[in-house]
């Protein structure tokens, strides 16, 4: 869920808060007129309930308008709507003629409001389901100015991957197309899993998936094609991650960052640097090569103090 969706849910919630002010004040200040409108001017109890509903409506509005992220609070409105609908249902069953018609009309109105409340509340719910907990596909592509067989061979040796995949610490070849991968996740937590090559077509395609460990089920594929005009090799990567709940999986997908596409694209850019120039290019503002992966945030473009990193 994007920031934009998040803001929209909150905007909706606030609009409901404002509407609620009107719905709350009317039964308190014009009880007679409103009870006539609702077709319940024949009952003292109904008039009291109407006033109580007004007070409740105001409480919801104060909550919604006072909160910085009001969308989840809309659930309190949904509960109130249920009470109102129940009361109206009772009122309708007790009445006949034009009063009954009015009660039913008002019921329809309240049902519409309920629908709006439920919709907004659901938007608010979705906002709390973290992006990285959802399954997804990440795709990235780059052109490498090297012959296809060379590019394929480098990738085929999975032990090379940590040179350019920023989240990997090591990959160990276990033979028979199996390998052991290790990454450091957020908060320094180590994640490990085993992967297996599931397809391997020389100079064309390599596909793998995680078989054991915390992210079993995740898979990746890389395809190699000749770039037109002798410009080397076009490399296309697709990663599929299928989180199945659990902290470790969430932590892994968080490895890929807020913007997994960008992350994989940056990995591919480093792959290109390694293939074309022999190593990952470092700048002082962005000193996160393979051996200097200390910070993901930019520092000032100033030399680093001794021992600060670099290729050694």
């Amino acid at each position: 869920m994007t920031d934009e969706d998040r803001r929209r849910a909150d905007r909706l919630a606030r609009a409901l808060g404002v509407a609620g002010l009107g719905l709350g004040i009317a039964p308190l200040t014009a009880t007679d007129a409103i009870s006539r409108l609702c077709g319940v001017d024949d009952s003292g109890t109904a008039r009291t309930m109407l006033r109580l509903a007004g007070v409740r409506e105001l409480v919801h509005s104060v909550l919604l308008l006072g909160s910085r992220s009001p969308a989840p609070l809309v659930w309190t409105r949904v509960v109130g709507d249920m009470l109102d609908l129940t009361a109206l249902g009772l009122a309708a069953s007790n009445r006949t003629g034009h009063r009954r018609t009015r009660v039913l009309a008002v019921t329809a109105g309240v049902a519409a409001i309920t629908a709006a409340d439920v919709y907004t509340a659901l938007c608010g719910l979705r906002r709390r389901a973290p992006e990285h907990a959802r399954a997804g596909t990440v795709h990235a592509t780059i052109t490498v100015n090297r012959p296809r067989d060379e590019v394929y061979r480098f990738w085929h040796d999975f032990e090379n991957l940590p040179q350019f995949m920023i989240h990997l610490d090591t990959v160990r070849d276990l033979g028979d197309g199996r390998s052991h991968w290790r990454a450091t996740g957020p908060l320094g937590r180590t994640l490990e899993w085993e992967a297996e090559m599931i397809d391997d077509r020389p100079d064309e395609l390599i596909a793998w998936h995680a078989t054991q460990g915390m992210i079993a089920g995740n898979s990746g594929a890389v395809r190699f094609t000749d770039a037109p005009g002798d410009r080397g090799t076009e490399v296309r990567v697709t990663l599929q991650y299928a989180p199945r709940g659990g902290g470790a999986v969430a932590a892994f997908t968080r490895l890929l960052g807020e913007h997994p596409d960008q992350m994989v694209r940056d990995d591919l850019r480093r792959f290109k640097q390694v293939m074309e120039t022999g190593e990952v290019v470092l700048s002082e503002g962005m000193p996160m090569g393979t051996h200097a992966k200390r910070q993901l945030r930019q520092r000032a473009a100033q030399p680093m103090s001794r021992g600060g990193g670099g290729f050694r």
């Binding site: 022999g278 002082e284 090569g289 100033q302 030399p303 001794r306 290729f311």
Partner: peptide
């Protein structure tokens, strides 16, 4: 000593660490 950008309209000559080799080239 190095000339540092310190914000719009502001440059200062400051002490910063000496540069070091980061890449083998």
């Amino acid at each position: 000593r190095a000339t540092c950008w310190m914000g719009r309209g502001k440059v200062e000559v400051r002490d910063v660490p000496d540069p070091q080799i980061l890449n083998s080239h």
